[in-house]
């Protein structure tokens, strides 16, 4: 005889196999973890709003008594004293981010479509190679890439950052998995029978169906490129990025605590906002991110 199942009702919903004690313990764990995750971020924001006397108060406070935007003003003053105009750093970062992201989106999507939906010989080994390359961190490849880039004459050129981003295996991997699970072969087959070329099928049938995939890819590429800092590939001041300019200010040490916190806020607010807007799409894409063997 089987024991009778314990059934609990949670907000008009029958819940199986869930004890109230367990729910409580989980809630407790989540709250502790959440506070741990949140405090440093909160402290960055607080720090950036503190006027000078509060930054150097003993003991340090977790609240700000007289919030001020002065640190942001200081940051822009400091940046405008730099060797090249501040707008140049912004332009460099925006250019690298956009060119890298769009190239990555286009090349990865078109390759992902071919790998996911066209049964050409050799696609399995190709995809397996790409999949295993997800492990190669840029640390491993950076030295050899320096040599390659210098041989190609791309050193000290924004394209030294942009072009490698076009071949990012992460974007292709997510896109391919998503296309495989969310586009039915019948739709494509009927388009082909109607005389659509492969390219047309890709562009006007497949691409509109994988919008969440685009967004995810854009965000991944964006996050990576937006945070491009000092790089051994770029050494002239006129090609340096926003992140580099800001890290120079932070390197000014403790006296720049307020300005550097303001810089951190600016650098983190953009990716976080982008994530907030696109979260549901990213999760949808991630649902198919599983790695089959």
């Amino acid at each position: 005889m089987q024991k009778e199942q314990k059934i609990r009702i949670r907000k008009h919903q029958v819940v199986l196999n869930r004890s109230a004690g367990g729910d409580g313990a989980i809630a407790f764990f989540l709250i502790i973890m959440g506070v741990f995750m949140f405090i440093p971020l909160y402290y960055v924001v607080i720090q950036s709003l503190k006027p000078l006397d509060e930054l150097w108060m003993f003991p340090p406070k977790f609240i700000v008594q007289h919030p001020t935007m002065q640190n942001f003003g200081d940051l822009f003053n400091l940046l405008s004293d730099s060797w090249v105009p501040f707008s140049r750093y912004i332009f460099n970062t925006v250019f690298i981010t956009f060119a890298g992201t769009f190239g990555n989106l286009f090349f990865s999507s078109i390759a992902a479509y071919a790998l996911a939906k066209i049964p050409f010989p050799g696609r399995k080994p190709i995809f397996t190679t790409i999949q295993s390359s997800l492990m190669f961190t840029s640390t491993v490849t950076s030295i050899a890439n320096f040599i390659t880039l210098s041989a190609l004459g791309l050193l000290d050129n924004p394209f030294a950052i942009i072009i490698p981003a076009w071949g990012s295996s992460m974007g292709l991997y997510l896109m391919k998995q998503f296309m495989e699970s969310s586009i039915s072969d019948d739709v494509l087959q009927s388009a082909r029978l109607d005389g659509c070329s492969e390219l047309k099928t890709f562009w006007s049938i497949a691409m509109p169906l994988v919008k969440p995939g685009w967004l995810t890819l854009i965000i991944y590429s964006f996050q990576g490129l937006w945070n491009t800092g000092s790089s051994i590939y770029l050494y002239s001041e006129q090609y340096k990025t926003l992140n580099y300019a800001i890290s120079q200010i932070t390197a000014g040490g403790i006296v720049r605590a307020g300005a550097s916190a303001a810089a951190s806020v600016i650098m983190m607010i953009v990716p976080i906002l982008v994530f907030v807007i696109s979260q549901s799409n990213i999760i949808e894409t991630m649902a198919s991110s599983g790695m089959k063997d």
């Binding site: 995750m37 971020l41 960055v44 945070n227 992140n243 951190s264 983190m268 994530f275 979260q279």
Partner: peptide, 16 residues
């Protein structure tokens, strides 16, 4: 999700 994921995308915020 946002609270837990934010630290990993917040760029240089770890300097805090």
């Amino acid at each position: 999700t946002l609270i837990f994921y934010a630290p990993s995308i917040s760029g240089g915020a770890y300097t805090i």
